[in-house]
Every structure is written in structure tokens, then in C-alpha cells.
Design a protein around this nucleic acid. Structure first.
Lengths: 460, 460
DNA sequence: GGGTATTTGTCCGTATGTATG
DNA sequence: TCATACATACGGACAAATACC
């Protein structure tokens, strides 16, 4: 139930959009179905088109997804997402058979979440907060911001102070904030192609002109960037999504020099650096930017901890922080206080560092297991395109002809979820991304065996 | 076979609706099945939605009934009204002649009750309950409480859980319960003036000191409330009785702040929110009260469904529920189990939502019909004071002098029941409340014509 | 008479036309 | 010309009722 006022200057569909957005952010019930366009329209005496406009806005910004002829559903914000649902009690059996093996390349097995510790800290903080009547800090609780700043500076080479950190309700919330704060200064937004599509949708929704910029073997093509005249550029330099390439240090410096020369802004999305088990992490662009004015750093806890936690953070240059402080309600918390306090305690007591380390080792093992399983079950019919890039191994068949669509179809029938990757934009499917993050270590071999059955069938 | 012309100005679904209506009226073959939506659609080369809209229109006006997944059937109820009543046995002729036209401003025509559906569910639940020997729940059957909680939270913005809902035997029962539960904590009761007089009588009977509080153009006068020192205040914020004013959101927040500051209690009577066809609903006070401790919400099924059902409900703050649980027999049911189960099923299967929607559309149409009839029969001798407020249009004569008492008297002689409204408290009668809820749609014009005869006589 | 194919109301999102500033 | 909002019209997905075998 929202409050809408037709006498206000603000258009009705915007009012509705804002109200729903607020609700989604505050009670993030991922996967929930929104009331249908008609229901909402009759309830508030609006036309369907008005409601549709509000939903379309939410959709454009990635808050909700549309399932044709079924309804709108709250998005699993950010591509991290995935928790095999928490079946509470008597959930009715799903109509669609659940997948047996899911090779989703960017998920973590839920068992890997240190649930017990988290629960313990959570109840402790809940009790401690009861007699604590202080105002929340809209930027995020200070203790948490300090923990984040400390972590980032020692393990990611980000130069920052707690004052520059804003705790957000995840990726989208953070990107919107950047879009808003930057729109007086910038108009042209560049994004990676292929890349994570949500980013440019958000900036598009905020009135930026968006341009795709090609990704090469070492990340973003700098000459294309120059040519595009983009002032703001969104990149995933440490582990480009979805190709997995890493931008080498020399290129990072060149990129920085260019952005500094045009007084632009890099949005550095370091979405899964915590999981990197493969190589020495490269210092963040943010840390390389000695001016401290041209990089906005975006991070999240969703990947390494749990998507359910829904906490991310920004590290912004001082000039953006100045605008932020002027324009935002200092006491409107974007994230539940308890969650923030729990997280702060979790970090402060060293659980976060331990968890990261543990996850790294585990991922390394899983990677190894996947590699071995592939070799065992597929023999010499395949070759590895990339490995060590994230939670997946990219593979291709040795044979030149291969019917990818049929592979997917056969896998589907056996309720195996596989994920194909295109080489660059517009090309054909050319590789399978064999994700291992979602399996338990000892599950991997069985899963690959099942996959191999499909593979072998197609190969001939 | 109807003739439909897509080139006409009139929308196709309206053309179809009119054609079918004409046919039903001329050859009213009660119980006949209409051709299915798809049949008609293909026959006339229309989309399903267009036919659906036409049928929905007929349904809303009561010409046809829908049996889900079976078909649409011509209503009986509609024609029953014309038949001379089946006098069972020797009923003596009534002494007082019954009124021919009753403009009572807050009633619903009995035809509008979905009797068939209700009966069907009722027998089903009766049979189902036979072999079911569980204890009744004094607070109300859980399935019903859950349905109520769900309905209230999505369509009235009430924050509640089924645990906080108590099913009552109507308004008075509920108010008595509140009076009992609150009397240890509160002594001073405030009520609206003008207002619904029953409320303060009940609280008076339970030993409260009661004070009237004036109603202004936007509802209760807050300064008067403060001055009155009332701790408990009974209000009808969404559609004040009898003035019809709505308390805007800003005032609601102020009222809440005041009550919170004195640790008092608001009794929010949302008696006819379901019927609101006129404006966008405003979220309930209960939902705005973030503390969850200072509003008791009172609702009823009497208005929208039928007074005969005699079921209401309360949503109480937790502290009141705690007292309730201590003091009341957990197994003394206030309402017949069968009724509760029937109602729960009625809601669960979507009939309640459908009924509400249907009623809204119908009221909108009746309102329109009343408006047109008034203009047709009274010409420019009157003006509309308020409309869209509930089931009546308030009118005044243009002439400055007008003998209201004589109007009432003349109408009385013609057995027309009319209802006059005072402007604020203490003033003279200054408007007539032309209620349309009690008429069938097509009756309205005749009724207004009869009323116009009286009106014109006085006017001169 | 019990399982199966079809029919049917009902729900859903979507596209386009139109009045109004 | 553009944004806002509403009305009209479309056709697909689904589960229950029904008809059919």
C-alpha cells in the first residue's frame, strides 16, 4: 500500500515507481511477485498504462524482471545472486522440475556461508541494539565503514578513509547513486561490450547517453574508448564480466592517464576480487589514481558472503562525497542497521578475513577438481579456453563443428543447467562455462560425469 | 447474432455489451448459458479481452453470473425483483405503507450480494466440517485471520500478522472488546462530532469519560483533540461519518505523532474503505504507526458483503493482544464456525477481491446515473455540494430560500425517504444526501423523477 | 467409471490510439 | 512537440470444469 497524490507535481507513475523501489530496497524479498498491473491499477484507480510505466522504469533499472504472461518479479539484484531457496516448512512442490546440476559460473555453494557465526553475531547485535536509540547514519554505520576501509586498503590497495565509504543496498543502489551524483558533470557513459548489461541501463535511465566499448584480450580497447568520447566508463578490470580477462597494470595506467586528461570518471567494479584464487591480485585502479578524483570504486559482499545479505559499498572521490552530503538525508539508512552491525562485528573479529582465505583455498580445490573431472570424462574431445578466471573453466570441443544449441537442449532434458559464452559481441556461442562454485567439492565429479553424457552425444 | 461496427465511435465491447443486454431484457431466459468468450470472439472476429470486457460489464451490473471454468449464465436475481413477492401463507397487510423509493445514503442493494457463490461455499464448508472435530479458536479461525491479514496489508496498508487479528461479531462486539482491554490504561475517550454515536455510548457504558471533538474540513480538529486531553480517540479517517471528509496524509502523521507523544490510542474505523470508488485510497493510520502500539484498527464485512453476515474484525497492538490472551477463553467462538470457514474460503478463492472490484464499478455507474438523473430532472434548480464521497451526492437548491422541512414532509407523503445533512454541527439542514446505493442501476432515474416532483413543488 | 483431451473463465503483459496540457 | 494519463484492443499461459472415450 503506497500513498499516491495526483495533486502533486510529480507524475503518478514516478510516484508509484519510487514507492515500489523503496519497498523493494527496504524489504528486499527477492523473487517475490509484484501485484499485477491490473491489480495495482484498480487498487489505486490508475490506468494500466500508468502502472505499466512505473513497472517499466523499475525494469529498466533492473529492480524487477518480467516473466511474460506471468507477472513481474523482484530481481535478484546483481549477477551474483542465487541461493537455492530456503524452503521454510511446507513449500508446495515446484511444477518445473528443479535442476539436478547447475553449472552457473558465478555462484557459491550455500554451505560455504558461515551461517552459524553469522547467526550468533546477529542475535548478539540485535540484543545490543535494543537500548540504543541513536539515529542511523545514512552513509552507513561508522564502525562498518571503518572496517570496509581497512579491508580495502590492505587487501585491494584502495586508498580510502571511512568518510569516503558509502554502504549501499547492493550493486544497483550504488550505481544509481553514482549516476545521480555525476549527472551534473557528465553526460556520456561508456560500458564494456560484452559486459554486464545492468550498468548501462541504470545510467540510461538517469539520462546519460550510453555507448558500448569493445573489450579486447586485455580488457577495454583504449582506442575505442577515446573514440567514443565517453566521460564516465564502467569497467570490471580485475576480472572482466563475462570474458574473464584481467587488465594488466600497464594498461591500467594508460587508462587512468586518459581519464585524468579528460577529467572523466572510471567506475571500477571489483565484484569478485575476494574470490580470486588464481593469481596475485592486481592493485585496484582506485589505488593507482594518485589524484584520488577519477575513480569510483564499487564492491559488494554478495559474492563472497551471501547474496541474501544484500550489502555493497562505494568508495567515492571527495568531490562526489561533497555532493552526496549536500543532497542526501543523513539519517535515511539504506541497509538494515542490524545487518550493518553484524557485518561490522563479523569483520572486526576476523571472520571475514578467515572466510575469504577459506573460500580461496576451497575454490582452488574445486577448480582443480573440475579440471580433473573434465579430463577424466571428456578425454581429448575438448580443450580449455580459459581457466583460473573466476569460478568457471571455459571449454571448447576440439572438433570444429559443434551444435551448441542441441547441447543445451539435451542438457535441459537431463535437468542440467549449463551456460554458454559468446566470443565477443554478436558472434556464435563458442564456449561452455563450466562453473564449479555452486557444487560441493565432492559433487563435482558426478556433475561432470552427467554433463559428459550430453557432451559425448553431441560430439558425434 | 448482433450487429457490431468497428467504425463506429462507440467501443466494440460497449456495443457488444449493449446488444447482449438488450437481448437479455427482451427474452430474459433465466439461467441460459451465454456463448463462451472464445466462441463469441471468433464469431465476431474480436479478441478475447474485448468480449471479456463486455461480459464483465454485464456481470458488474448483475445481468449475468459467472461460474468459473464453466460459463456465463443469465441471472435470476435480476428478474426476481419484478415479480410480485411470493407471499408465504397469510401475511397480514402492512400497516405502514412501505417506502417506494429510499435514498438512504449508506446502503447497498441486496441484489449485489453474491448469494449463489456464498451458498455454494457454505454447503461445502458445512459438509467439510462434519468430520472435523477440532476446537474452535476464540480469536477467530486461523485460516480466516490469515486471509484478513493478507487482504488488509496489501490493500489497506495495515501492518499486521494473523496473530493480531480478532474476528468479532460486528462493530459493537469489537468496540466493547477494545473498551474492556483498554480500561486499565485509559480513562478519557474522545469521539468525532458530528460522528457515529454508537461508539461513545459503548465507551461511556464501560466507565470512560467521553468528550466530543469537532470535525473540520480535513477531519478531526487536532487542537481540539489536544485540548480535550482524550487518551483514546475514535475516528473514521478514510471517510468521516457523516460528513464524508477524508483526512489527508499530512494530518494523519500529525495525529499519530500526538497520540504517540501522550502514549494514547487511536481507534481507526475503516468501515467502508472497500466501497471507495471515488478517490485513491490513503494508507491506513495503523500502517503509518511505525511503533505498532498506538492504533487499533476496526473493520467489517457488513458494508461490502452483507449486514446479515455479521462479521467484523479488529487488528490490535501487541500489548492489547497480550491482555486479550490472558483474559479470554481461548475456545469461545464469537462467530459461527461455518460462517468463518465460508468467509475464509470466499476470500481465499478470490471471490472477495472480485466482489470488491465488481462493487466499485457498479457504484461508479450508479453515481454516474444519479448525477445524470439529477441534471435531467432538476435542471438548473440545484447544485452539487459534494460528490464522489460514498454512496450519495449532496445537493443544494440554487435559490437562497428553501423549506427543507416541507420537502421532507412532501416526500414523506409520497413515500419517498430522503435524508438531510447539516452543515457542520448545530447548523440548519442545508443539503439533501441523494443516496444511490440502495437502488438498482436502472431504478435510479425513476426514483429521481419521483423525487423531482416534490423538489419542484417546494422550490417555488 | 475412471482416465484423458478439450473447453472455458481468468489471469497475465503488451501495443496502440487519444485527450490534455 | 512532448510528457502524462487513460481507454481500447490484443493474444498467450494456466488450471479447473467438463465432455469424451
Amino acid at each position: 500500500m503506497y500513498h499516491l497524490d495526483p495533486n502533486l507535481k510529480i507524475p503518478l507513475h514516478i510516484q508509484l515507481y519510487k514507492a515500489i523501489k523503496r519497498e523493494i530496497i527496504s524489504q528486499h524479498r527477492v523473487g517475490d511477485k509484484l501485484p499485477s498491473i491490473r491489480k495495482t491499477a484498480t487498487l489505486y484507480h490508475l490506468s494500466k498504462t500508468t502502472v505499466e510505466a512505473a513497472y517499466a522504469q523499475l525494469y529498466a533499472e533492473g529492480y524487477i524482471e518480467s516473466r511474460a504472461r506471468s507477472g513481474y518479479y523482484v530481481s535478484e539484484l546483481y549477477f551474483d545472486a542465487f541461493e537455492p531457496e530456503e524452503t521454510s516448512g511446507a513449500t508446495p512442490a515446484k511444477i518445473t522440475e528443479p535442476v539436478r546440476y547447475d553449472f552457473f559460473p558465478a555462484q557459491l555453494h550455500t554451505e560455504d556461508f558461515p551461517l552459524k557465526t553469522w547467526k550468533r553475531l546477529c542475535t548478539r547485535e540485535t540484543n545490543a541494539s535494543l537500548d540504543f536509540g541513536a539515529y542511523p547514519d545514512g552513509q552507513g554505520e561508522e564502525i562498518l565503514r571503518e572496517e570496509i576501509a581497512r579491508y580495502l586498503s590492505h587487501s585491494r590497495g584502495v586508498r580510502c578513509h571511512a568518510d569516503q565509504v558509502i554502504v549501499t543496498h547492493g550493486f544497483i543502489d550504488g550505481m544509481e547513486l553514482i549516476a545521480k551524483l555525476g549527472r551534473e558533470r557528465y553526460q556520456r557513459f561508456g560500458h564494456e561490450l560484452p559486459g554486464y548489461h545492468i550498468a548501462h541501463k541504470i545510467f540510461g535511465a538517469y539520462g546519460y547517453r550510453t555507448t558500448p566499448i569493445e573489450v579486447g584480450r586485455h580488457g577495454l580497447r583504449l582506442e575505442k574508448l577515446r573514440h567514443s568520447k565517453a566521460q564516465v566508463v564502467y569497467i570490471t578490470p580485475s576480472h572482466q564480466y563475462p570474458t574473464g580477462v584481467t587488465m594488466p597494470i600497464t594498461k591500467r595506467l594508460k587508462l587512468l592517464a586518459h581519464i585524468q586528461s579528460i577529467d572523466g570518471l572510471i567506475i571500477e567494479d571489483d565484484y569478485d576480487s575476494e574470490l580470486a584464487y588464481y593469481n596475485r591480485p592486481i592493485p585496484s585502479l582506485q589505488g593507482l589514481d594518485t589524484t584520488g578524483e577519477h575513480v569510483a570504486y564499487v564492491g559488494t559482499f554478495a559474492k563472497a558472503l551471501s547474496p541474501a545479505i544484500r550489502v555493497g559499498y562505494l568508495v567515492l572521490p571527495e568531490w562526489m562525497m561533497a555532493i552526496y552530503r549536500k543532497s542526501y538525508d543523513a539519517h535515511f539508512a539504506r541497509v538494515s542497521l542490524i545487518t550493518q552491525r553484524t557485518l561490522a562485528a563479523f569483520m572486526h573479529e576476523g571472520h571475514w578475513d578467515r572466510h575469504i582465505r577459506r573460500t580461496r583455498i576451497l575454490n582452488q580445490k574445486k577448480h582443480q577438481a573440475m579440471r580433473e573431472a573434465l579430463i577424466r570424462h571428456l578425454g581429448d574431445t575438448f580443450r580449455i579456453v580459459t581457466e583460473g578466471a573466476g569460478l568457471a573453466i571455459l571449454i571448447q570441443p576440439r572438433a570444429s563443428e559443434f551444435d551448441w544449441q542441441r547441447l543445451k537442449q539435451v542438457a535441459d532434458e537431463k535437468r542440467i543447467a549449463i551456460y554458454l559464452a559468446k566470443e565477443r559481441s554478436g558472434g556464435e556461442f563458442e564456449a561452455a562455462r563450466m562453473g564449479f562454485g555452486g557444487f560441493r567439492l565432492e559433487e563435482i565429479d558426478t556433475a561432470v560425469a552427467a554433463f559428459a553424457e550430453c557432451w559425448m552425444k553431441i560430439k558425434d
